[in-house]
Amino acid sequence: MSGKRKVSREAILGILVVAFMAFLALTSNFDSKSGIYSMMLDVSPSIVGAIAMSMVIITGNIDISAGTILGFVAFAAGSLAELGAPAWIFIPAGILMGICLAGLNGWISVTFKVPSIVVTLAMNMVHLGFYATFLPNAGWVENLKDNFTWLGRGRFFDLVPYIFVIALLVAVLFMYIMKNTSFGKSLYAVGGNRQAAIYAGINPDRTVIKVYLVEGLLLGVAGILKATTANEIMPSAFQGREMIFISAAVVGGVSILGGGGKVLGAVFGAFLVYLLSIAMIYLGFQDYFQFSLQGIIVLIAVFVTVTDFTELRKKLRGTFTRAGRARKARA
């Protein structure tokens, strides 16, 4: 029936990532060993976080508190490690923290019928206040030892960080889950056409709670990947990470309206967001101006994924030519 086959959005994004890297390598010392290493180190938590955020966005929801949840995860894992706990204790503890907090978001949103953007925006503030008020030393954990940092600092072949490999494994696993399980399909259904999902026997409320639980699990992983790269943890520093995740998801082609998008796209999105910030540093932009540029990129990405271009073309038809304007005025 449908004749021409379109190149998938993910393929375009992949090419873009490679082209971007090549460009940076040619114009800077990005291709040095340290450049490549820092990219892999920095992008790993973003990949996992972007996947988490994408799944939530696909169901038509969002999590503004993802950054502050990472703060709690890092605090929980770090404090246990400071007391001498090994990885098999602090990793599950961190993940459990993520699951509980994100699950709470989903539960509140579904039970009290509050839009997730409101719930998670509020929780973001609740978390920040909680750090400062109730955590010892505002949650600051210092002097973390090898029992914690081996994970974030370890590398294969003296180059590839353990955490990068973990992030890629997570990506592969979730690509598989989204494509090959009923759970994955139900996320698209709920976000794409809620009424039709109900008619297909899917319970949207239960699906939303499930997606937040899974998001929490992934935020737990992302938080630990990020935290173990440094020997101190300040929870409030994680605030704002959610914007990176959201940007990565949106740039990666996940529809902000819900119902569409791929894990692979979000992974490439995470790379692109990182490369963009690096490029701006190389180009000598000041720190804060980077935010503006990133914001503009997100805006463009949303525009591209959400806009119905045939409709827009119809609307703009004639706007840019004198004859067209005259025709419009006559009508």
Binding site: S182, K185, S186, Y188, A189, G192, N193, Q195, A196, A197, Y199, A200, G201, I202, S255, G259, G260, G261
Partner: peptide
């Protein structure tokens, strides 16, 4: 559906971003 009665609603019950195959088996993969 399980009892063999299917309805094609006036309003569409499809998921626009998914493929034909995914749509056909949504909810009963």
């Amino acid at each position: 559906y399980a009892k063999g009665i299917a309805i094609i609603f006036q309003e569409t019950s499809l998921f626009p971003e998914l493929t034909v195959l995914e749509n056909i088996f949504m909810g009963h993969e």
